[in-house]
Simulated assay, not measured.
Amino acid sequence: MRKLIAWLGTVLMTLAVLAGTARAAPVSVQAVTTVHVKAVSDIDSVSPKGKTADCPAGMVAVGGGFTTATGVGNDGSVVQDELIIRDTSVTGTAYEDANGTSKNWGITVFAVCANPLPGYEIKKGRSVNSGSEFEKPAVATCSPGKVVIGGGFEVTGGLGEVVVDELLPSSNQVFTKAFEGKAGTSRSWHIDAYAICAFQPAGWQIVDKVGPIFSGGKTTTAKCPVGKKVLGPMFDLTGSLGQAHMLSLLPHDFPDQEVSIAALEDDDGTTNSWGLNNWQICAN
């Protein structure tokens, strides 16, 4: 009888361990290989402009970037409307704002591509309101057991009169938010957040760098720790309330653990003191 009880105890303990293991989120030990691909639009005074950067065969998109400083025309009159991450590509679109510009301008779109990661998925979340409210947030959430590796956003109906203010990660969610620009709009619009998710890669880490707060254009550069590379570049504007917008979100090729971001005030400026913060997802 004692042997039977001992055997049953061993079985129950084994089952408990197995059950706990089944609930745990897998952690990949596979190193992540990344490449950066870019696509450049025409440079002229036509609005809007869109471009798609495609990943090499066999790779997936884990993050994206953009710059509206292509050409010389963005003096605060061009706003990035979307950075949509799909399985194997990144699409960016920019519009002139309500005042427009006669200058020549263009956009460059970047895709951060990686070897397929276990559990890779893209989740989408939409703002609750879709009228002409001044401010709208949206959040996308990964499936249970997965972490954020990148993110994107998409404004529908803004047509240059809505400014994306943030693209922020947490461990399993991506938050984005947009404001109507200085002139407001009577249009109905909404914003979507995109979360790029996977089982946690080796060395996964969220890095952020807080920038200075003052009135005027600004840039910040942040790096992943030594030995890690950027998967998903992100950003956060604070205090600008629709009167400043992103000029660029640039993942650098060499070294590939660095991201530079820049933001401008709109074309008539603002006296608001505002900040620009640099966020990125890193992994081995």
Rank of each mutant, 00 (worst) to 15 (best):
R2I: 09
R2T: 10
I5F: 13
I5A: 15
T14G: 09
L15R: 02
L15I: 02
A16T: 09
L18N: 00
G20V: 12
T21G: 15
V27Q: 10
S28N: 09
S28R: 03
V29E: 07
Q30W: 00
Q30E: 13
V32Y: 09
V35F: 02
K38H: 09
D44Q: 07
P48C: 11
G58A: 08
M59P: 00
V60K: 12
F66M: 11
N74S: 11
D75Q: 11
D75N: 10
V79P: 02
Q80H: 01
Q80K: 02
R86V: 11
S89D: 06
V90M: 05
T93Q: 09
E96M: 14
D97Y: 02
A98M: 11
G100Y: 04
G100N: 07
T101L: 01
S102F: 05
I107L: 15
A111Y: 00
N115G: 04
N115H: 02
P118H: 06
G119A: 06
G119Q: 08
K123M: 08
K124N: 07
K124W: 10
R126Q: 15
S130Q: 11
E133L: 08
F134P: 00
P137L: 04
V139Q: 14
T141W: 07
S143Q: 12
P144H: 06
G145T: 03
G145V: 02
K146Y: 01
K146R: 15
K146V: 05
V147C: 13
V148F: 03
V148E: 11
I149Q: 08
I149F: 04
I149V: 15
I149G: 04
G150I: 04
G150A: 12
T156R: 13
G157Y: 03
G160L: 06
G160S: 09
G160N: 04
E166G: 09
L167D: 01
L168F: 13
S171A: 13
N172Q: 10
Q173V: 05
V174G: 08
E180Q: 15
K182T: 13
T185Q: 00
R187N: 07
Y194E: 08
Y194V: 03
P201C: 10
A202G: 12
G203Q: 06
W204I: 00
Q205M: 10
I213M: 14
S215T: 09
K218W: 03
A222L: 03
C224H: 07
P233H: 03
M234D: 07
D236P: 01
L237I: 14
G242M: 06
L247W: 03
S248I: 01
L250Q: 15
L250M: 14
P255R: 05
D256L: 01
Q257V: 00
Q257F: 06
I261V: 08
I261Y: 04
A262S: 15
A262C: 06
L264H: 11
L264K: 10
D266R: 09
D268G: 04
D268C: 01
D268A: 09
G269Q: 08
T270S: 14
T270V: 05
T270Y: 12
N272M: 03
N272H: 06
S273D: 13
S273F: 06
L276V: 01
N277I: 00
N277A: 09
N277T: 07
